[in-house]
């Protein structure tokens, strides 16, 4: 229980007066208005300027010359590269410049394709972009950058495999949701040693779900994707158990429940009840594994 909760409890039970409570709170958590305001002004200011610059070029794109169109992302790439070199890639600012460079590579490829009308498919942009991101990812050693690289590669693979169809927004939604959930898990359980395998696993688990969905929507008679997804998730569950990774265990258990629900929707009656049953079993599996895989248990 943190100190603020202690103070809240004392005030609520009338052991403290309101002025005494405010005084203690002020001593415990000094306002430091300068630091607070400075951080917010930096985020807001940078965000406004960036949004304004993007809007400015978007508004005047048709009137820009080819050289300028190609030169802008190259200038951005150069500026970010110089910034990263100047600050050093181990520095937070240097890593931010590295991210900027990664984004500008993609922007340059997109502009190149548009200016010269290369006739390439959209997915062909993502393949080279992913390849060019890999050396940067190795240099930066940043898990978020690796995630971006894997994500770009995923877009390439998926869009190469299937032509554009209306389920694409759904796929992006699912992908985004899984990445957000993974990020939450990262924040909640800071286990730096095991981060890498988890974050590589997450995009693959997204493919699992996506392929299973695609199979259900477009290839009703093909069971390959669903079987592959189930085998992969089950294998990952076993891996999570042996590596004593609770988050991965929980993730896999719920993934299996989701895949099981899809299967149930295809072949079984009372789909809702069976799906809820699968998720309840997954919850039970997590509750069962909790005391066995818990972090502090390993250190006892």
């Amino acid at each position: 229980m943190n100190t603020k909760h202690v103070l809240n409890g004392l005030l609520q039970n009338k052991f403290l007066t309101l002025p005494a409570y405010e005084r203690l709170l002020g001593e415990l958590y000094p306002l430091n208005a300068g630091k607070w305001l400075s951080a917010r002004l930096l985020w807001a200011g940078a965000g406004f300027v960036l949004a304004g610059v993007i809007c400015f070029f978007a508004a005047n794109w048709q009137h820009l010359g080819q050289m300028l169109k190609l030169g802008l992302p190259l200038a951005g790439l150069l500026a970010c590269g110089l910034g990263a070199w100047h600050k050093g890639v181990q520095n937070a600012a240097g890593q931010a410049f590295g991210f900027g460079a990664g984004v500008f590579i993609g922007v340059f490829l997109a502009v190149f394709g548009q200016v010269y009308q290369t006739g390439a498919f959209v997915y062909q942009l993502f393949g080279p972009w992913c390849l060019l991101l890999v050396p940067l990812a190795v240099l930066l050693r940043n898990k978020w950058f690796w995630l971006m690289t894997v994500y770009v590669g995923a877009v390439y693979w998926i869009s190469k495999s299937f032509s554009w169809n209306p389920t694409w927004p759904l796929w992006y939604g699912i992908n985004g949701l899984f990445i957000a959930a993974w990020a939450l898990a990262e924040v909640l359980v800071r286990q730096n040693g095991r981060v890498f395998c988890r974050f590589l696993w997450v995009p693959f688990s997204v493919f699992n779900l996506y392929f299973a969905l695609m199979e259900r929507v477009y290839f009703a008679k093909e069971w390959t994707f669903l079987i592959f997804a189930l085998v992969f998730a089950a294998a990952a569950l076993v891996y999570a158990w042996y590596s004593k990774d609770l988050v991965l265990w929980a993730w896999n258990a719920f993934m299996l429940a989701g895949l099981g629900s899809m299967w149930a929707a295809e072949v079984l009656p009372f789909y809702f009840f069976i799906s809820a049953g699968f998720f309840a079993v997954a919850g039970g599996a997590v509750a069962w594994a909790w005391p066995r895989l818990r972090e502090d248990k390993h250190h006892e």
Partner: peptide, 21 residues
């Protein structure tokens, strides 16, 4: 207003905020 003015409307306060910081 037009997109160009909107972009200036964003850049202006942004620069002001960075300057204030």
């Amino acid at each position: 207003i037009s997109l160009t003015y909107k972009s200036l409307f964003l850049i202006g306060p942004g620069v002001l905020m960075l300057w204030a910081r």
